[in-house]
Design a protein around this nucleic acid. Sequence first.
DNA 1: CGATTCCCCTGATAGC
DNA 2: TGCTATCAGGGGAATC
Length: 296
Amino acid sequence: MPELPEVETIVRGLRKKIVGRKIVGVWLGWPKLVKSHNPAEFARILKGKKITGVERRGKNILMDLSAPKGVELKLLTHQKMTGHFMVGKWRLAGDKWESLNGGHLGHKKNSYIRLMLTLDDGRGLGLSDVRKFAKIILGERKEIENLPELKKLGPEPLERGFTFSEFEKIAKNKKSAAKRALLDQNFIAGIGNIYSDEILWLSRIHPLQPISSLSKERLQKLFKAIKWVLQKAVRLRGSSVSDYRDSSGKPGSYAKTRFVYRKAGEPCPRCGAKIISMKVGARTGHFCGKCQKISA
DNA sequence: CGATTCCCCTGATAGC
DNA sequence: TGCTATCAGGGGAATC
């Protein structure tokens, strides 16, 4: 499940591999993936365009496209749960793409490639997505930048401009419980279920603790934990708890040293008490019942 | 306004 | 063995 660190890792990989490349072919195996155009239009527009940049905003990937005399376009991708881009050499075998360099998750054939953009260097940019939750929107630069899914996003937690005073301001006005707030993309962008559990454990905050009730001192701890956990995860190239892989097919290593995520029943790395799992809204949260207590 | 539920999907796993 | 039920989960929309 790509969150900020996984998306950042993919974006950095893509920047090296595909910026400057021209799209020469478009194969769309799951038409519903593209929300903005029908498959024929989508392919017609993309063909011949040059990829001039790749950026991340929250968990979204934005690719800049330009044609010799055309308007500048942007391609927005949200990978949701199981989506990830893979760059490599590919061969179409029937209706399945076969990787010619390494395969994917132990299989040579990747049955889950939903989109393949073939590039002018003979490689291909594939989007693999088991559960078909990913989405793509293509449009003019301004149009994409003004989409509510980007406009409404909260601050980028790893940016220098995201300071404690800004965090304090938004946290004081936030009514919801800590776990819910961290998962809210319009509160802070990029945090998902893995890192919200990890951040709360590190700052010793109970998932249901109302965030606005935290003292300045505890809010500072939380703020530091957000930066620390996300930075560490970016350094370790993300978490591969299930099927996340980077754009070269390599797993991330954060999961090996994680504290609590999906560790119900195991001892807390800090105090040894059993880690508990609990539903928080529609998500499963994991935390230590002993060192993450709700306070008044 | 916030909280909850449904929906989109498929693979893994548990239960029979 | 093989079937079915359940769950996982990002996030937007509809609903309470």
